[in-house]
Design a binder for these strands. Structure first.
Length: 329
DNA sequence: TAGACTGCGCATGCGG
DNA sequence: CCGCATGCGC
DNA sequence: GTCTA
């Protein structure tokens, strides 16, 4: 039994519970556990044998018990029982961008649709419109989502993503309406593979920038086109998000969207302990709301009494403690 | 052992 | 036509 | 479901 196999079981449990309308935080707990187990460097079977599962943050008594069951028997009773409650095709449908648990359950209950195949046929035949909350537009979006699911590959190697991102940044830089511009996310952290490309800008007049962004030649699909946020899929099959942020929050947004998520959570906790509040808009005093930082990323860390941490190190592997003690390499 | 767990922008449909 | 609620995604 | 106060 590998970590990936165990992770997959919990991920499926999360998906099924979500379709069944369970408490979202419970769903999130399973999903997070799956993620944690998948990214574990140690063998989950060893950890189970040594009874050290609960030492892992995010794994509590309940999940630890279930991991033991999986390791011992090769399966999870709860998982089998849940699987019996819904057709397997519903989980596939959940993978379609734009199809969430509510829509999946809606089309299943009302039309008996239990596979991506059937969903596609129904959408093409115009049988989805008329369902509450669904019109012709939603139908088209679902068809587009199915195409997207079929064409979209997994995470993109940095070697492919970086040149693509650089090209987009270079193109946007040409526009006079673009003031500051940066990448964020796993790309900026230089991870080996990246899930999507995040770009942040400040601009006094975002509309032309957004218009140019969604009409770049490499753009395959436009998922959203607003004045502060737009999302597209480029030919490499990767999603690119462009966000316009206020100049005084640029550093905060850069910090926030660069992540990692775990790094940000640790920073937030630290901020709270210092009587501060940190979010994508800046660092603020918790009591008065006075703004302490936000325009530049370096100030964000300075406001927490620590040196700027290079993006590559922001993984919550001890870099925050190191920074606080001034022993950052 | 009770309460928190981010909260906001976009797209869409609904209802006034 | 416009404001509001909902679903979705992050 | 997990964590914290």
């Amino acid at each position: 039994m590998t970590n990936a196999q165990v992770a997959r079981i919990f991920a499926e449990v999360a998906d099924i519970l979500e379709i069944l309308g369970e408490n979202p935080y419970r769903v999130q707990a399973y999903r997070r556990a799956a993620q944690i187990i998948e990214n574990l460097t140690e063998d989950i079977v060893d950890l189970a044998r040594r009874d050290e599962l609960e030492k892992i943050p995010g794994i509590g008594a309940s999940i630890a018990q279930k991991v033991k069951e999986i390791v011992a028997t090769g399966r999870l009773k709860q998982h089998e029982e849940l699987k019996a409650k819904i057709p397997p095709g519903l989980l596939e449908m959940l993978q379609i961008p734009g199809m969430g648990p509510k829509k999946v359950l809606l089309v299943y209950k009302r039309l008996g649709i239990d596979s991506v195949q059937k969903l596609e046929e129904a959408a093409k035949a115009g049988r989805l419109r008329g369902l509450p909350g669904m019109g012709a537009k939603t139908e088209q979006n679902i068809l587009r989502g199915i195409q997207l699911l079929r064409s979209t590959r997994g995470r993109l190697p940095l070697g492919i993503a970086l040149p693509a991102a650089n090209k987009i940044v270079a193109e946007l830089k040409e526009l006079p309406q673009v003031e500051r511009i940066t990448t964020a996310g796993s790309l900026r952290r230089m991870k080996e593979t990246i899930g999507d490309i995040d770009i942040l800008i400040t601009s006094p007049d975002p509309k032309p920038v957004m218009d140019r962004f969604v009409s770049m030649p490499m753009v395959k699909e436009v998922l959203a086109h607003g004045t502060t946020k737009s999302s597209v899929i480029i030919d490499a099959g990767t999603q690119v998000d462009l966000r316009v942020v206020p100049p005084e929050s640029f550093g905060a947004a850069q910090q926030y969207f660069t992540g990692s998520k775990d790094h940000n959570i640790r920073l937030r906790e630290l901020a709270i302990k210092k009587g501060l509040k940190i979010n994508e808009y800046g660092v603020f005093k918790a009591d008065t709301g006075e703004r302490l930082a936000g325009e530049h990323e370096e100030e964000m860390y300075a406001a927490l009494d620590m040196p700027w941490i290079p993006p590559e190190m922001r993984e919550n592997w001890g870099e925050i403690e190191a920074a606080l003690e001034g022993r950052l390499p």
